[in-house]
Nucleic acid binder design. Structure first.
Length: 171
DNA sequence: ACCCCGATCGTA
DNA sequence: ACGATCGGGGTT
C-alpha cells in the first residue's frame, strides 16, 4: 500500500491521459478514501461541452489556473460536481470525478458525481479552488491497482457526445 | 434585475 | 424514459 500522493506533474499532462490514469487511483478526503472508477475529460475552449467554452468567467476561473486544483461547481439547483484541473496554466481543462468505490464501508459504490459530492460533503464554498497537491486531507494517491476500463461518450450532456471522453472501470 | 437551463438523481 | 428541482451563471 503506497501512500504516495500524485504530484502536480501527473495533472499537468494531456487531459485524456489524466482521465484514463485516474481510474484505479485512490481519492482521499479527510476520513474518506476510495478507488476512482469513472472519470470524464473536459478539454479547452474548443470542447463545446466544457464550461470554459464560453470563456474565462468567475465560475470557470479555476479551470484556467494551474493543474491539481479542485474545480467544484453547482448544478441542477441541488448538486455539486468535483473535477481536478489539468494541463498547463491558461489552458482550461479538467477531469470530472464521476465514480468512487469507498474503502469504508467496504466497497460502497458512489456511482455519480452528485452522489459522490453529497456523500463526501464536497461543495463549492469550501472546496472549489483547493490545491490537491499541497493539501494533506484532500488529494489523490498512487495505487498499483491495474484496473481495466472502457471508453464511452460522456454522459448527461447535449453537445460533444461524439467524443469518447468517459472512462469507466470494468467490473 | 432577470431569465433560463443544466457535466444529476431517483423512480417508473 | 421522465419529471422534480432551483440556484446562480451569463447577459441585460
Amino acid at each position: 500500500m503506497s501512500n504516495i500522493k500524485l504530484p502536480r506533474s501527473f495533472f499537468e499532462r494531456p487531459t485524456l491521459a489524466v482521465a484514463r490514469d485516474l481510474i484505479g487511483k485512490r481519492l482521499i478526503y479527510q476520513n474518506f478514501s476510495g478507488l476512482i472508477t469513472e472519470t470524464e475529460a473536459y478539454i479547452g475552449k474548443d470542447d463545446t461541452a466544457c464550461h470554459a467554452a464560453k470563456g474565462r468567467t468567475k465560475r470557470t476561473e479555476v479551470m484556467f489556473g494551474s493543474a491539481g486544483h479542485a474545480y467544484v461547481y453547482f448544478i441542477y439547483g441541488m448538486y455539486y460536481c468535483m473535477n481536478i484541473v489539468t494541463e498547463e496554466e491558461d489552458f482550461p481543462a479538467a477531469v470530472l470525478i464521476r465514480g468512487l468505490v469507498l474503502d469504508q464501508p467496504y466497497e460502497k459504490n458512489l456511482d455519480g458525481p452528485g452522489k459522490l459530492c453529497r456523500e463526501l460533503g464536497l461543495n463549492k464554498d469550501q472546496h472549489n479552488g483547493l490545491d490537491m497537491i499541497s493539501s494533506q486531507e484532500f488529494y489523490v494517491e498512487e495505487t498499483h491497482q491495474q484496473m481495466k476500463f472502457i471508453q464511452t461518450p460522456r454522459i448527461g450532456i447535449k453537445v460533444g457526445t461524439d467524443k469518447l471522453w468517459r472512462f469507466l472501470a470494468k467490473s
